[in-house]
Design a protein around this nucleic acid. Structure first.
Lengths: 158, 158
DNA sequence: CCGGAATAGTTTGGTACCAAACGATTCCAA
DNA sequence: TTGGAATCGTTTGGTACCAAACTATTCCGG
């Protein structure tokens, strides 16, 4: 990796280079993409779920029915994106949408029984997959990884 | 976060739950998405570049001309995806493609002078953005973050 | 009340991204 | 030397994803 650093620094002349930050950030992206691809192929494909679709089901499973706006926030998705994905999940019979009677702008999303069955079955497999992806990391390692990432997330949100 | 853990564990009954791995992996994904979105909005949009497009330019800048297959590997993209993105970058006048004369299956990709100028200008801004995203992390923190992520990447690739 | 501002979700237009199928080229073994 | 296997990039078909514009509803100040 130091080869690359030398090459990059050479291109930059005497402009500064923060290589530690570069490696930290680029590895976040790389890790996310690889993990996502593998999860979709090895765990989620059998259930016709995308990574995002799984996340939606999982959030609903943990927190019960939820309004679209909050669901988008919890899943880290733009609200327009969520609309499309909810339509997909609805077609699959995994979730329902219903207007809030007292405020017809709002929409309440909930799992159907089929949705609950699905996440019931998928989640343990997904969690085992997560364990496999963190093989070689001790429990404190994982906690430290999560902590450092939360700092990055905070920075990205301010 | 412990609320969620209790709720999830309740849903699982006495099935095992690896919450450390769950938090580590889910934060990778969340951090990647937030960082990507912000980079595209605040740094790359001015140059008409996507996150992936920037990565391609950067890899070519550091390693010079490269064949498509290796470029896809370096960028962590499927080769079909790369074809489309190279077409975009080619239209923007930032890269060129030429067949390898000795093996007409292969394609050599390189930066144009405009591409070089662009990445020359964008990279320092991007690196400053990376620094900002790792604000609050010490240098050893960043190195530790990169190390832990590399372990995850290795797991995802085996 | 009533009309403009705020808010919730959807639509629109566009790129990015993947896996799998496909052509073109090269390699190799009989 | 020749025909099948391997390899490279592209095409295809489909979802995910974003930002911005739009629609419907609610809220609020006069």
């Amino acid at each position: 990796m130091l080869d690359a650093e030398r090459d990059v620094q050479a291109r930059l002349g005497d402009r500064p280079l923060d290589f530690d930050s570069l490696l930290a950030i680029s590895n976040i992206y790389r890790a996310a993409a690889e993990v996502r691809r593998r999860a979709e192929r090895e765990v989620l494909a059998d259930y016709g779920l995308s990574f995002g679709g799984f996340t939606i089901l999982w959030v609903l499973w943990v927190w019960d029915e939820m309004e679209t706006a909050r669901l988008a926030e919890e899943c880290g998705l733009a609200k327009g994106t969520l609309t499309g994905m909810l339509t997909t999940l609805e077609k699959q019979g995994l979730i329902t949408r219903q207007r809030v009677p007292s405020d017809k702008r709002r929409m309440l999303v909930d799992l159907t029984p089929e949705g609950t069955d699905t996440i019931d079955e998928v989640f343990p497999k997904f969690n085992a997959f997560e364990s496999a992806m963190t093989n070689g990391l001790s429990s404190p390692d994982k906690q430290e990884l999560a902590r450092l990432l939360r700092l990055v997330i905070t920075n990205a949100n301010t």
